[in-house]
Each structure stands twice: as structure tokens, then as C-alpha cells.
Simulated assay, not measured.
Amino acid sequence: MFHLVVEEGQAGERVDRYLAANAQDLSRSRIKGLIEAGCLLCDGQLLREPAAAVRVGMALVLTVPPAAPATPEGEQCVAFTVLYEDDDLIVLDKPAGLVVHPAPGNETGTLVNGLIAHCGDSLKGIGGERRPGIVHRLDKDTSGVMVVAKTEKAHLALSEDFAARRIDRAYLAVCWGVPAPASGEFEGAIGRDKRDRKRMALTERGGKWALTRYRALQLFGTGATLMECRLATGRTHQIRVHFSANGHPLLGDPLYLRRIPAASRQLPAAARAAALDFPRQALHAARLGFTHPCTGVELSFETPMPEDMQALLEALAES
């Protein structure tokens, strides 16, 4: 536990930079994580903003929890469907509701915990640790196909292919309203929302360029549309941000759907109720294609929408 009082000449500095200069043996990135995890008190009040400025006389108390094991423990109870597996990689169908990687608030019960238990000694090691190599992620409440590396070689090769956009990815999404035109592209740089750090947003400065190609597969009147989305890039929340920013947020999206859409009034009562009650973003990673990093064989995997999304489409179709 570090107890610090800001002195003359240090006022105005970011609190994470101030702590990095004064808290021995802690990197700035580690301090930033601790602040965001709720480990910093400022004059007795919780402070979670690393960019907050310090002032003279401010009393800071930074609590560093005991170090956790470098490798999360395996857990047999984590459920997912294996689509393909060999010595180099594993392809799986992630269910909605499953967090991919341990993080504050989700230290156990993640996909990584389940993969460690499932793969066992077949994990050769990534970065000196016996752990799965997470090449890409799906949001907790997004379902669908993922590939995970089991060796350092596979991890590096797959990461390069994702970065170079050599991966075939298709998603199914249900959005409010009907985008016009019915097929096209959503483009715009995506960065952290300055007003809400949990959200991403289109930004003119500081974001990363993103491109989503879409086409309508099924219209439910003018109230909702089943879309196929192809990613040219892989930014955090990309599909959710692009559709929301263009006036067609995904059904059930807890972050980017802040009010009842006007398009909902175009649906019959039963369909409208089903759409408004859908408990997660209606998004499924339906297809993933890539070149095997060790054999060079072209692989492609597709999974159907989970039962909750299928039931949603049936309710909408009755309109």
C-alpha cells in the first residue's frame, strides 16, 4: 500500500504518471490498471480515472493486491463447443455470456480457464507460459466462431494474418430499422468514447480506421433487419459502433442502445415486445476462414445462430 501526498511543483500532472514516478517497482500500465480496477483512493474517495490531474496536498492511497498466478487455472465447468482441434490450434463456438479472458471482475469462469482445462498438456506455451494464445476476441454477449492458438508459432502467424486482414469473417446481426442502401459500407475511425470509457465511438482524432461491409438478408417490415456483416478491420465493438452511429443500433445492445428506437413502432405488439426484451446484442460470429499457420491448408467454419437469436427472428417474422 502506497501513501503519497502531492507536493508543490507536481500539481497538474496526470495521476497515473505521478504514481509511476513515486510508487517504486510499478509500471505506468500496471498503475493504470489498478486505478481502473478501483484500487486508488484520493482524499478518501475512490478515483478510477488515470488521466485525472493531481493538486497540491492531495492525499493518495494506492492498494496493490497480492500477485495472481501468471497462468489462470483450468476449469472443467466452462462450456463451449469444439469445431476443430489439432496440435497447433483449436476452433470453437463460443456461447453468449462467456467472457474470453480473465480480468478484474471476471477472474474465473472464462473461456481461457476452460481452454486450459480442455487442452491440458497440448498447450506448448505462449510467451513462456502454458496458456492458450488468444488471437481475437468476441464480446461477452456475442456468440460464434473463434480460433485460438496452442503454440507460439501458430499464435504469431494467426496474429499477423488478422493484422494484415487475411481472415474471412462474417457476422449475423439484427438491427433496428432498415439501413439505406440495403447493402453498402460503414466507415469511420473508432476510439474510446470520451464521455463513457466503457463505450467506443466514431472519432475524428485518435481512433483507428474501421470498415464494415453489410447487406440485408431479411427485412421485418421497416422495424428491423437481419444483416450480414463482413469485417475489413477488427476494432473493439466495430459492428455495434458502426450500426449505432448510422442510426440502426443492434437489438438488445446494452451499451449503444440508450432509448427505445422509433423503428420499434413499426412492429406488431408481439414482435415489438420480443425485440425490446432481447437481453443481449443480437450479434453472432457466423463464419471464420483462415489459412492454417503450419500446414497452409485453407480452413473455413460456420455455425448457426444460437437458439435465442433464432427465436427472435421467428418472433419478428410473425409480423
Rank of each mutant, 00 (worst) to 15 (best):
P72A: 00
L92C: 03
E85D: 05
T81R: 15
P50G: 05
P50W: 09
F80M: 01
A68M: 14
D86C: 02
V64T: 08
A79Q: 15
L60R: 12
P69V: 03
V78Y: 08
D86G: 01
V54L: 04
M58H: 02
A59G: 10
V64A: 08
V54Q: 03
V56R: 15
A53K: 15
E85R: 02
L83Q: 07
V54A: 01
E85H: 01
V61W: 11
V91Y: 02
P69A: 07
D86Q: 00
V54R: 02
A53W: 09
A51Q: 12
T81Y: 11
P65D: 09
L89K: 00
L60V: 12
I90V: 11
T71K: 14
D86R: 02
E73Y: 05
G74T: 06
E73K: 12
V91D: 05
M58Y: 02
T81H: 14
A53P: 11
P72Y: 09
A59E: 15
L83V: 01
G74P: 08
P65C: 00
Y84E: 04
P50I: 03
E85V: 02
G57Q: 12
A53C: 07
R55I: 07
E73T: 09
R55A: 13
A68T: 11
P66I: 01
D93Q: 04
T81C: 08
V82E: 14
L92T: 00
E73I: 01
M58L: 09
I90L: 14
I90K: 05
R48Q: 14
V91C: 08
E75V: 01
D88E: 15
M58C: 07
T81V: 09
V78W: 06
A59W: 12
L62F: 06
A59H: 12
Y84P: 03
R55P: 09
E73R: 11
L60F: 10
F80R: 04
V64F: 07
V61A: 14
E75P: 02
C77H: 15
V78P: 04
G74S: 03
T63D: 13
A68H: 10
Y84G: 00
I90R: 05
C77L: 12
I90F: 07
V56D: 12
V82G: 08
A67N: 09
A52Q: 14
D86W: 02
V56E: 15
R48K: 13
M58Q: 14
A59Q: 15
L62N: 07
A67H: 12
